[in-house]
């Protein structure tokens, strides 16, 4: 999603959000993430207004093919620091920097070492990378449904390497063990990562 992104050209506008919208975001974050109110308060104090950074699609030629077009991506920033982002009105994702600080707000999957190289190039994660010995999927009783935002960790590393959206439920991944399991949304070193201030 953020493989090619530059704030100077792709951002169409910044606005400070209405407090009612902020409140609804706050409540949906509490519902979506594994986070308690106090921690959220610490990340995002009530007094601080959230800025919405809208991103636009540049050329028309992209809109037809690219399902991950930058159209309708909203980045939410706190004092210029990107904090969350969202595609259309889908789930909120934390940015990787936020995720590094609070690693357990999203459920975790892990890929084996062989996959890191591709992961950091922005490839989607295939099932075998997570079902192999170095990988990790949550146990059956904590099955994740398809379409859940997850953090992607890597074998032998302590910090998250990417954020993704599951394409299959974790049990299906085990069963099928083929093809894309998790779609990568944002990864270490992509263009959103390099934006520290917006």
């Amino acid at each position: 999603m953020f493989k090619k992104f530059s704030p100077s050209t792709d951002v169409s506008g910044q606005t400070i959000l209405k407090s009612s919208v902020q409140r609804s975001i706050r409540s949906s974050l509490l519902a979506q993430f594994n986070i308690d109110a106090e921690t959220l308060e610490q990340i995002w104090p009530k007094k601080e207004p959230l800025t919405l950074v809208k991103c636009q699609e540049l050329g028309l030629h992209l809109t037809l093919v690219d399902e991950h077009s930058r159209e309708h991506i909203s980045i939410y920033a706190l004092q210029g620091e990107p904090l969350l982002f969202q595609h259309f009105d889908g789930p909120f994702y934390p940015t990787l920097r936020l995720l590094h600080k609070y690693p357990d707000i999203l459920p975790m999957v892990k890929v084996d070492r062989g996959a890191i190289r591709f992961l950091l190039a922005g490839a989607h994660m295939m099932c075998p990378g997570m079902t192999s010995a170095g990988g990790y999927l949550p146990p059956p009783e904590q099955e994740l449904k398809a379409g859940t935002p997850v953090t992607i960790h890597a074998e032998g590393k302590t910090h998250a390497a990417a954020i993704g959206l599951t394409k299959l439920s974790t049990e299906q991944m085990r069963k099928v063990n083929k093809g894309i399991g998790v779609e990568v949304v944002s990864y270490l070193g992509d263009d959103l990562w390099s934006v520290q201030k917006i």
């Binding site: 308690d36 600080k101 690693p103 590393k157 910090h159 070193g189």
Partner: peptide
């Protein structure tokens, strides 16, 4: 009173900006 969770401090590489353990892939 419920305490907020403390953020994890991550050391980022000054050269490639990734967490230091990922330098080998940079």
């Amino acid at each position: 009173p419920p305490q907020p969770k403390q953020p994890v401090e991550v050391l980022y590489c000054a050269v490639c900006t990734l967490p230091t353990e990922y330098c080998e892939f940079g």
